[in-house]
């Protein structure tokens, strides 16, 4: 596996595109109840969780995805690994569109793209031992020899910092951090190239959080992985990511190199989000921008720019009427805001 050369901290864009997401949409459409079956409604309620997203992830990079709860970041992650069927759009993985892949082709994709879930308490089957949990993906990859499987499980456990003695224990016998390690081992069992980490450390204690973050970084180096790292914790995202995408109500608001997003944010939403991060260091604290209200419902997102209802830098009518497009304002730094168009 060749590594894409680094060019002043940014991965080579031309050769490196690993996953390309084109106009990806995931809508949740209201199921008709008895009444609407008899008397069809004119308009069905549609939750546009992911609405027309374009994103490129390069080989070997960690793409951070941040946003408040309900902005669709988890839906995007699940759609990319095809745990949700995309409503529309393309997911091009190493040159092949897998948005509508079925059967063998989808299985093949699953071997290369895996996911680590947010809650280590609910993502492991309580009735299965660690051995069972790790055997299933190994069979799926086609490791038929039980001895080889055994060895592989031992290796995986060791790699994520657990002991092979743990093999016959059940999930409830582990602490939260250890469970998350099992979740990581399960994702690694497929020998993937791409991992979606969906809030992998949110449910963990501070001291354990650091252990898991370090483990994920080590694994990335060692196995040449590519991550999509989803989190609402901005400090964690800053720490692990090469590039960051900021999502709001199903749309990407700003996208760029981590340093650009964190030290030179341009979108008002990013600015407000960053200003809300509490910091232990007094000197680092920014002047807080308190956003009024909460995230509007994705059922009827505001017209025009989705952020205009809470925006403190609103330009005028245009914000309420025209939806801004994601535009490149400088090298690799994209923003969807009328202030910059």
């Amino acid at each position: 596996m060749h590594k894409v050369p680094l060019k002043d901290g940014v991965l080579d864009m031309e050769n490196g595109t690993f996953i390309q997401i084109k106009n990806l949409k995931k809508y949740f459409i209201e199921e008709p109840d008895l009444l609407t079956r008899v008397v069809p409604k004119k308009k069905k309620r549609v939750v546009k969780a992911v609405d027309d997203i374009n994103l490129e992830i390069n080989k070997g990079e960690t793409m951070g995805l941040v946003g408040e709860s309900g902005c669709g970041k988890t839906t995007l992650g699940l759609t990319i690994v095809r745990l949700y069927e995309p409503t529309d759009g393309k997911i091009i993985f190493e040159g092949e569109d897998i948005a509508e892949a079925r059967g063998e082709k989808l299985k093949e994709y699953r071997k290369r793209a895996q996911i680590i879930f947010q809650n280590p308490y609910s993502s492991l089957n309580p009735r299965k031992t660690v051995r069972d949990i790790l055997t299933v993906p190994l069979i799926a990859v086609g490791v038929k020899n039980p001895h080889v499987r055994e060895e592989r499980i031992e290796y995986l456990l060791e790699r994520v910092g657990l002991n092979h003695r743990h093999m016959d224990s059940y999930p409830h016998q582990f602490s939260g951090g250890q469970r998350q390690r099992i979740g990581i081992a399960r994702a690694l069992a497929m020998n993937p190239q791409f991992i979606v980490a969906d809030e992998p450390v949110s449910a963990l204690d501070v001291s354990i959080q650091a252990q898991i973050i370090n483990l994920l970084e080590e694994l990335k180096e060692e196995l040449n992985l590519t991550y999509l790292f989803i989190s609402h914790d901005l400090s964690v995202v800053y720490h692990v990511s090469d590039r960051v995408a900021v999502m709001y109500l199903g749309k990407i608001m700003e996208l760029g190199k981590t340093e650009d997003i964190f030290f030179n944010p341009v979108h008002p939403y990013t600015k407000a989000l960053l200003s809300a991060i509490p910091s232990v260091d007094k000197r680092k604290r920014r002047k807080r921008i308190i956003l009024e209200g909460t995230v509007p419902s994705p059922v009827n997102p505001p017209k025009g720019c989705r952020f205009h209802t809470r925006c403190f830098m609103k330009k005028g009518k245009i914000c309420e009427e025209v939806e801004p497009q994601l535009k490149e304002i400088e090298n690799g730094h994209f923003v969807a805001c009328h202030l910059y168009s």
Binding site: V206, S207, A210, S235, V236, Y238, H239, I277, D281
Partner: peptide
């Protein structure tokens, strides 16, 4: 230890 283990920007 706690202070050191928080990711900082």
């Amino acid at each position: 230890g706690l202070l050191k283990s928080i990711p900082k920007i």
